[in-house]
Design a binder for these strands. Structure first.
Lengths: 157, 157
DNA sequence: CCATTTATATCACGAGTTTATGTAAAATTT
DNA sequence: AAATTTTACATAAACTCGTGATATAAATGG
């Protein structure tokens, strides 16, 4: 469009991130009957361990009612269990069931396998470049996530 | 079960991509009353221009009925318009309205701005590293998307 | 003991998904 | 040309998922 587009067109992290999102969402989804939301929730529990419903909603950036219903569905499917806190009659900890844990682990492996297949179609140079680039990028991205999370939390209060 | 924590030092493009997805979906969403699905659809039309409904569904990896309803909603909101093809009475081309195009352009700018704010919290070294890494990664990722799209298409036939 | 806060649930509703099916126009067959 | 099939899209039914508003029930603090 204008001259700004020239600078940003060559060096645009946003565009690259958008591409990643499209690749992951569109082509590496394979949510075998599971929704993106459900996957994200289970993945969160897998990484963070048992979590209170309200906190789960907060870290997933979703509303409490939405999370409440999601947990109920996942409970019906036998993927999570509730542990009522004896110290606090209101609260309950949401945790992965064995089935849930297995499912997440399998999914993670499947995703890795599928991405590996895709990476195998690249030239050895491209494959190496991408791996190197993403290994450089990852810790920095994680710092961005941390920063974003903090500013989200602040904006919410 | 196994040590997820040890993945940190490992070479795992999947994990890095997952981080990107979480960052973009969770923290850079700001879908001002617009859904992720709607955003994706409008973005597609912005990039590809007027598209038939069926093809739109295909490239977005969504069903035809789902896309049909989505387009109806977007039409109601004045973001897309239909142009019935005089050559083919069955088909209609879906295109962005002026309002839709403006909205997508603004959103893109906002996303860039917000990401720029986040990047500004990084050290100059990290910022430069991330930009460099993503500029290396992007064309390779685009090749992956192309490959994935072709194999998706083949699997569907 | 009563009021407030906190944790979760429920309700109403719209968006978005799927599969199955309907409709109408184009293409093909005979 | 008429009948059939295919193609492009719409509709229906049933579910997940999101929201805000509100209910319930337990902890907390006067």
């Amino acid at each position: 469009m204008d001259e700004v587009g020239r600078d940003q067109g060559r060096d645009d992290v946003t565009e690259a991130f958008d591409d990643v999102v499209r690749l992951m969402i569109r082509h590496l989804a394979d949510h075998g009957s599971l929704t993106f939301t459900a996957i994200m929730c289970l993945g969160r529990l897998y990484r963070d361990g048992p979590t209170r419903l309200t906190e789960l909603a907060a870290v997933e950036g979703s509303s409490q009612p939405s999370t409440s219903q999601l947990v109920q569905r996942l409970e019906r499917q036998g993927l999570v269990v509730r542990v009522r806190d004896p110290q606090d009659g209101r609260a309950s900890l949401i945790a992965l069931s064995d089935a849930g844990r297995t499912l997440v682990a399998n999914r993670l492996r499947d995703r890795r396998d599928r991405l590996a297949e895709l990476l195998a179609t690249l030239s050895p140079e491209d494959d190496a470049s991408l791996r190197l680039a993403m290994n450089v990028a990852r810790p920095i991205i994680q710092r961005l996530i941390e920063t974003a999370r903090r500013s989200d939390k602040q904006a919410r209060s």
